[in-house]
Simulated scan of single mutants.
Amino acid sequence: MRNKNSLLLVLGSLSLLTLLVFILSLSLGDQQFNLSDTVRYLLGSGDSSLQFIMGEIRLPRLLVCLLAGASLGMSGVLLQTFSRNPLADSGTLGINAGAGVVITLAISQLEVTDPLYIRYLPFVAMLGGMLTVAVTYLISHQKGQAIRPVKIIISGVTLSAILSSSMIAITGRVNQNKLTYVVSWLAGKITGNNWESLAIAGPVLLLLWFLTYQRAYQLNILSLNDETALGLGLHLKRERLLLLLLASALVAFSLSLAGNIAFIGMLASHISKRFLPNDHRLLFPAAMLLGALIMTIADTITRAFLIGTAIPTGIIISIIGAPYFLYLLWQTQK
């Protein structure tokens, strides 16, 4: 699986599968269309009804799935490199909970409909996520000793539980309209499925993708033990700080669009490493494609097959991800 043709086959197959699922998902929903109708819309034709449903309802939502899923997949690679643990994810390290507390506080104090608030919410959420994962690292790391992956996971899960409990206390003081928004976000309901939110978060996520991929060489070195990385001239503290900043930013902007989504980073990163060598130049695109694919499939299930149940996308992903997490935990202990 290490030769060039095999690597290209894996990435090419993932790209083709993601494209096919995207087109199929665009066709499914309350009102189903033929694949020919979907292709016709993508080519710029079709009647007004088709144009409205595809252009104003489905396409923005699917673009959120692609952007958020890919970003969470990339963040999963970053966090697993940081912690050296296949169980690491934005949820297990507390980033989701940290961003959630900040978002809940912001919603309780500000107007949800204020355009200025919507514009700057992802940046505030990024700060909350970054602070949380930094605290997790400080709790679990002892000076002069190597990173203990299990200790990081335990610290992250514990801190996440504390922050999640604090969110319940905060929501007790929120009015009903804002409470509905908060609960929807916490359950993983896609909230940024409109062109305005995409126009704000989309360019930032694309920039973060570029900046993260530019660090692939340094991250390959960081994957080695600390002594080797130092011997090769890597500034460990600076690289880890940059890694935390990039991972927190990717997660925060994804969560501002897609709600409280967990497990995608862990799933996408771990599955990528099963089929590809430990080279971030390859792991990043593979994990991004897998993240986008998982997110799109989960959202399609909720839209097309669970109509009227009000089950959010995040619940479907948790149903998929939680058993896989337990399986990895069992394998790690074994």
Rank of each mutant, 00 (worst) to 15 (best):
S6G: 10
S15L: 15
L16G: 01
L16F: 13
L16W: 08
L20G: 06
I23F: 01
S25Q: 04
L28Q: 00
L28H: 04
Q31Y: 12
N34I: 10
D37S: 14
L42P: 04
L42K: 00
L43C: 00
L43P: 00
S45P: 00
I53V: 14
R61S: 00
V64T: 00
V64K: 04
C65W: 03
A68Q: 12
G69N: 00
A70T: 07
M74K: 02
G76Y: 10
Q80I: 05
Q80H: 07
L87S: 06
A88E: 10
A88S: 12
A99R: 06
A99S: 11
L105T: 08
L105V: 03
I107V: 12
I107L: 14
D114K: 07
I118A: 11
I118P: 01
R119H: 11
F123S: 01
M130I: 06
T132F: 09
V133T: 15
A134R: 06
A134H: 08
Y137A: 13
L138R: 13
I139L: 12
S140Y: 04
H141F: 05
Q145W: 04
A146V: 11
I147H: 01
K151Y: 00
I153D: 08
I153V: 12
V157P: 11
L159R: 09
L159H: 11
S160N: 12
S160E: 03
I162A: 12
S164F: 11
I170K: 02
I170G: 08
N175Y: 09
N177V: 13
K178P: 08
V183Q: 06
T191Y: 09
T191K: 10
A199I: 07
I200Y: 10
V204I: 15
L207W: 13
L208G: 00
W209N: 00
F210D: 09
Q218W: 13
Q218E: 14
L219W: 13
L222H: 05
S223A: 14
S223Q: 05
L232S: 06
L234Y: 11
L234P: 08
H235G: 13
L236Q: 13
R240Y: 01
L241H: 12
L242G: 03
L244C: 14
S248A: 15
V251A: 10
S256K: 03
I264H: 01
I264W: 04
G265R: 05
M266G: 06
H270D: 10
H270C: 02
S272Y: 00
N278D: 07
N278S: 13
L283D: 00
A286W: 04
G291Q: 13
M295P: 07
I297M: 12
A298L: 07
I301N: 07
T302M: 03
A304G: 06
L306I: 12
L306H: 10
T309E: 10
I311L: 09
G314D: 03
G321Y: 06
P323F: 14
W330R: 15
Q331P: 02
Q331R: 15
Q333L: 15
